[in-house]
Design a protein around this nucleic acid. Structure first.
Lengths: 199, 199
DNA sequence: GATCTACCTTACTCAGAGTAGGTTACTACC
DNA sequence: GGTAGTAACCTACTCTGAGTAAGGTAGATC
């Protein structure tokens, strides 16, 4: 019964627990409104412990963002492994993303909202997450597209990431839109273009 | 010489001045790191004056965001008035947007970054700006597209806004990309779709 | 059972948001 | 020109929450 009523926890376990609680509090209240005292209390530990492990409030936020990012990467990378065509790869990746944001709301909320701290590490961290996804897309696409204009390809990848991010936020307001439908909408514009729908 | 060395200013003028200074400070330091004391000092006035006029730090931020938004609206709406086709309207609107973010960096920075305060009025205010643009696009498009699936059309508009926002951020890192090129890249994906570039 | 160390606490400092209450310059009217 | 009224403004505070100093305690190891 090592786990029974034990108050003291090994460092790694305590850290995981702190990140878990912090993710919830940050996404519920927002970074600014969340207080370290509250997080500490919910964890069942005193405030200096949080500082011992994460150095600062922002450090704790960083840990949460990194955690979310690694999950997102895992999920989207896995999704595209068996794709045969560019269209298929794109569709699978999109679906994985839209499933992720539905199933891991808190995680997504952090990635979505906490870009406030311009010039601080946290903002860079969120940008890094987008870059991760952009690179993934660029890499995927480079295998399928004619590599002409390098800049243009990069722009296209950015474009896809931004579009999907916004569509994901839109999905939050529309519970009736399933990840499959969202994917379908995204594919529609991205793959076929608006021209195909013009009168 | 009413404007010469006058210390006291009429309310409206002082407010405009405060918003102007605040816009710079917020975009330079970020909302969290900006202090009301500093803004007050730069304006050449004491802190309670800021509170007299804007009630809170967030109120001041709100005023800045609203200011930026109204300029953005002005600019993009004007740009699309004479468009003959959907393609033309889209292109003109995009160009106006990309010119705006280049010429009014501080204003854009606010709209871009200050979405941190989830659940607070400022976040809503930034969302409202996106909605403004989304509505604009949706209205424009509805004139040109077959109105089939309502939800799909809404999703497409969200998509365009998100994509452009991200592309705009990408442009910040790429000074060599002119507003015209950005517009071209955007049109390429949006109008023709990725399929047209697949091997 | 002594000691060592990693986990944890109480009790502070300090910066910055927000406020209470008084002061001064401009205006309007006699 | 003088004086009453008010809009603009200030000094000097409170209070919340991030971050820290210094010390206490459980549990492993010998």
């Amino acid at each position: 019964m090592t786990t029974a009523k034990r108050k003291r926890m090994p460092r790694a376990e305590r850290m995981r627990q702190m990140v878990e609680v912090a993710e919830q509090v940050f996404s519920a209240r927002g970074y600014a409104a969340a207080s370290m005292d509250e997080i500490a209390e919910l964890v069942g530990v005193s405030k200096p412990m949080l500082y011992e492990y994460f150095n600062s409030k922002e450090g704790l936020l960083l840990a949460c963002i990194r955690e979310s990012r690694s999950v997102l990467r895992e999920v989207t990378e896995q999704a595209t492994v068996g794709a045969a065509t560019a269209e298929d790869a794109l569709r699978r990746g999109l679906l994985a993303f839209f499933v992720f944001i539905r199933e891991r709301r808190e995680a997504w909320s952090l990635l979505r909202h906490e870009m406030a701290l311009i010039g601080t590490p946290a903002a860079d961290e969120v940008e890094e997450t987008r870059r991760q996804q952009t690179d993934l897309i660029a890499a995927l696409m480079s295998g399928y597209f004619d590599s002409g204009d390098e800049l243009r390809a990069e722009a296209a990848a950015e474009f896809v990431v931004g579009a999907c991010e916004r569509l994901a936020i839109w999905c939050e307001r529309h519970d009736e839109v399933s990840p499959e439908m969202a994917t379908e909408y995204a594919m529609d514009v991205l793959w076929s273009g608006l021209r195909s729908r013009a009168r």
